Simulated scan of single mutants.
Amino acid sequence: MPTEVSNVLDGNPWLLLIFGAAIAFRFIGGVLAEASESWAKVLGPVGGHRWRDRAERKKAARRSSQAQDYEDMHDEIRRLTRRVNTLAPAMEILEDYLIYDASYHTTLELQMIQNGYTMPEPRHIGWLEYKRQHTFSEPEGGAT
C-alpha cells in the first residue's frame, strides 16, 4: 500500500498540494469561523456555522465555569467571615484571661517575695515573655 501511494504521488504531485491546502483550509477556516460570525457565514456550506456554534458552546461553558468559580469564592468568603466572627469573641476572652493571669501571677510572686518566700521552679512566665522566648515564624503574607 505505501508503495502504491508513493507511485500515485510521484505521478501526481499536485495531489499532495491539494491535500495540504485542504488541511490548512480546515484549520484556518475553523479558527476564523469560531472567531467571527461573518466568517462563519462565508464558510457556512463547509461547516462554518458548526464551528461557530462550537465556539459559542465553549464560550457559554467558560462563562458557566467562571460563574461557578465566583460562587465558590463567595461561599468561601462567607464561610471564612462566619469563622472569623465566631473566633473573634473567643480571642477577646482569651486575651482578657491572659492579662488577668499575668497580673494574678505577678501579684502572687510579689506577695511571696514580701513574705520571704521564693517561687518554686519552674517559674511561671506570662504570655509576652513566653512569646519572646519562642520563635514563631510569620505566615506568608504578613505579620499576625
Score class of each variant (00 low, 15 high):
Val5Gly: 03
Gly47His: 01
Tyr130Ile: 00
Glu34Ile: 01
Glu121Ser: 11
Gly29Glu: 04
Ile125Arg: 14
Asn7Arg: 14
Arg26Thr: 05
Ile23Val: 10
Arg50Ser: 11
Ala40Tyr: 06
Gly126Glu: 12
Leu16Gly: 07
Gln114Asn: 06
Leu16Ser: 12
Val46Tyr: 11
Ser65Pro: 03
Phe136Asn: 01
Thr81Cys: 04
Lys58Ser: 08
Lys58Cys: 10
Gly141Lys: 00
Glu95Gln: 12
Gly126Cys: 06
Val31Met: 11
His134Gly: 06
Arg132Ser: 10
Tyr100Ser: 06
Trp127Met: 06
Ser137Cys: 12
Met73Gln: 13
Glu129Asp: 02
Glu138Ala: 04
Ala102Gln: 12
Leu87Lys: 03
Arg79Asn: 06
Leu32Thr: 06
Asn7Ser: 15
Glu92Asn: 15
Asp75Val: 08
Gly47Tyr: 04
Lys41Met: 07
Ala55Val: 01
Val31Asn: 12
Pro13His: 03
Val31Thr: 04
Glu4His: 13
Ser6Trp: 08
Gln114Pro: 00
Asp72Lys: 14
Pro45Val: 09
Thr144Ala: 06
Asp96Lys: 13
Asn85His: 08
His74Ala: 15
Ala22Leu: 12
Val46His: 02
Pro13Leu: 12
Gln66Gly: 02
Phe136His: 06
Arg83Thr: 04
Leu108Met: 14
Phe25Asn: 11
Arg82Asp: 11
Thr106Cys: 03
Gly141Arg: 01
Gln114Tyr: 03
Gln111Ser: 09
Gln66Glu: 12
Leu94Met: 11
Gly126Arg: 11
Gly11Arg: 14
Glu121Trp: 07
Ala40Gly: 02
His134Asp: 08
Thr3Pro: 15
Ile93Tyr: 13
Glu109Cys: 00
Ala67Thr: 09
Gly20Asn: 05
Trp51Val: 06
Trp14Tyr: 10
Arg62Glu: 14
Gly29Arg: 01
Lys41Phe: 10
Pro13Met: 03
Asn85Gly: 00
Val84Glu: 05
Pro89Glu: 07
Thr118Ala: 07
Met73Cys: 14
Arg52Ala: 05
Met119Tyr: 05
Ile23Cys: 02
Ile99Met: 08
His134Leu: 05
Leu15Met: 14
Thr3Glu: 15
Leu108Val: 05
